[in-house]
Design a protein around this nucleic acid. Structure first.
Lengths: 122, 122
DNA sequence: CCCTGTTGACCACATTTGTAGTCGATCTTA
DNA sequence: TAAGATCGACTACAAATGTGGTCAACAGGG
């Protein structure tokens, strides 16, 4: 059972992945443009993420600073793996095909994918 | 707001995408190896999927036959798009990179991806 | 023709998720 | 030094989700 991070919690994780070591009110500040949450809501989400083992805390005076306990890349891997397993029979190519069809790939994407395939070919 | 299909519901959808027009007990039969659900549970999930507009029903005698109202590909596209937006800044290449890193790509995947990239290059 | 099994309709209930409120302790500022 | 701001702990509560139960109608086997 991988740690399950909900959509709302993920928004918090993204902030902390970008800037580890923030306190609750700074996270609220970073989210203000983006989410319409009160500080209370953010604190609840932070608590839940700590309970789940997704964040670690350090005390600084009477407040907590939050750092990721689950790395962004690790989470990206599980999430991508889950999607591909659940919906694409574990195969990456059809997933990319649907993405390309749904929204197109940027030139940059195409270039990066080519480079990636190059490194993978034995 | 795209129709939200939960993980449990998705298992049902997959059966019906494969074999549209089944009734509840046949779906239960198809799931028996895979899920440990009673017929009651399956019927509840079917009802919810109909309420959500993901399935359509036809009456056959005193039972219902279920067919997809949301196509598999359409759902794959939304789900893939959501993942890529929420976790990869909308970029496909990093998603594939994480997948490759997490579980490797099969030779077939690599070949298909190359073919796909070929068709996309203007 | 009666019993049994199956069907959909409706109900139940714990857990998770989204969104916040209360409270006592503490920090800060006038 | 007293009042307000802020902190974490704890509580609240509706909606969604997972899982299954009840019940009345009906269909089919003996």
């Amino acid at each position: 059972m991988t740690v399950q991070i909900t959509p709302a919690e993920l928004e918090i994780m993204k902030i902390i992945w970008d800037r580890p070591g923030l306190g609750a009110s700074e996270i609220a500040g970073a989210l203000v443009d983006q989410q319409d949450w009160t500080i209370k809501t953010i604190k609840t989400l932070l608590t839940r993420l700590v309970e789940k083992g997704a964040l670690a805390t350090t005390s600084e005076g009477r407040r907590y600073l939050y750092t990721p306990k689950i790395a962004r890349k690790a989470y990206q891997k599980t999430a991508a793996g889950q999607l591909v397993d659940r919906l694409f029979n574990g195969r990456a190519a059809p997933l990319v095909a649907q993405l390309a069809d749904a929204r197109g790939l940027t030139d940059e994407d195409i270039a990066e994918l080519e480079a990636l395939l190059g490194t993978l070919k034995s």
